[in-house]
Amino acid sequence: MLIRPYQHTDLSEVLALLSTNIPAYFAPEEYDDLKTYLFHEIEEYYVVEQGDCIVAAGGINYKEQDAYFSWDFVDASMHGTGIGKKLLQHRLERIKEQGNIRRIIVRTSQFAYGFYEKNGFKIKEQHKDYWAPGIDMIYMVYQEH
């Protein structure tokens, strides 16, 4: 398994990877939102390769002294295998290298918040139907152990 920076040549594979999580974890309209992110809003974005395939992706965006996890997902057939945790840990290490970050934030859904909760994030807010009808936004902040 290799975690490496995203390249524009990864676009179709990353979009296909997201599709494995629609509609269970993401709304269909979020497909175009991810494209917009990858073309215009990306700061740090990583992919996880296993063999010749990209099996996970996730990014970090920064605003002042806050770091935000952005667009993270694992191939739906590989949920629960530890790949997501390795990608999360990679990004936490990358953020800690910055030295000036005071909060690490993730905005996720009711379908994925449990993963973040198990990995040190605490719920601060919840907004119903935020991402799409039936997909709430759970605002969480990392609490280092």
Rank of each mutant, 00 (worst) to 15 (best):
D10S: 05
L11S: 06
L11I: 03
S12K: 02
S12C: 06
E13F: 03
V14T: 04
L15H: 08
L15F: 08
A16P: 11
A16L: 05
L17H: 03
L18E: 09
S19N: 11
T20N: 02
T20P: 01
T20G: 03
I22M: 04
P23H: 00
P23V: 00
P23F: 03
P23G: 00
A24F: 02
A24I: 03
A24P: 04
Y25C: 05
A27W: 02
P28S: 00
E29V: 04
E30G: 01
Y31P: 00
D33T: 13
L38A: 14
H40D: 11
V47R: 02
V48C: 14
V48S: 01
V48G: 13
E49R: 05
E49P: 00
G51N: 10
G51E: 13
D52Y: 14
D52V: 11
I54A: 05
A56I: 14
A56V: 06
A57V: 03
G58Q: 13
G58W: 14
G59C: 07
N61R: 14
Y62C: 08
Y62A: 06
Y62G: 07
Y62V: 10
K63W: 13
Q65A: 05
D66E: 11
A67Q: 09
F69Y: 13
F69T: 13
S70N: 07
S70K: 01
W71A: 00
F73I: 02
V74E: 13
D75K: 06
D75L: 00
D75G: 11
H79M: 12
H79R: 12
H79Q: 14
G80D: 06
T81R: 12
T81C: 09
I83Q: 09
K85N: 03
K86Y: 02
K86L: 09
L87Q: 02
Q89F: 11
Q89P: 00
Q89L: 01
H90C: 04
R91E: 14
R91D: 04
L92T: 12
L92V: 12
L92P: 08
E93D: 07
R94H: 14
R94F: 09
I95T: 08
I95G: 12
K96C: 05
E97I: 00
E97G: 07
Q98M: 07
G99T: 12
G99F: 04
R102M: 08
R102F: 12
R102W: 04
R102Y: 10
R103V: 08
I105N: 03
V106G: 06
R107G: 01
T108E: 10
S109H: 05
Q110F: 00
Q110L: 00
F111C: 01
Y113C: 14
Y113H: 15
G114A: 07
F115G: 06
K118D: 11
K118Y: 08
G120D: 12
G120N: 03
K122F: 08
K124R: 14
E125I: 12
E125N: 15
E125S: 10
K128Q: 07
Y130G: 09
W131V: 08
W131S: 03
A132H: 10
G134L: 03
I135F: 15
I135C: 02
D136T: 13
D136Q: 01
M137N: 01
I138K: 05
Y139R: 12
M140E: 10
Y142D: 06
Q143I: 15
Q143S: 07
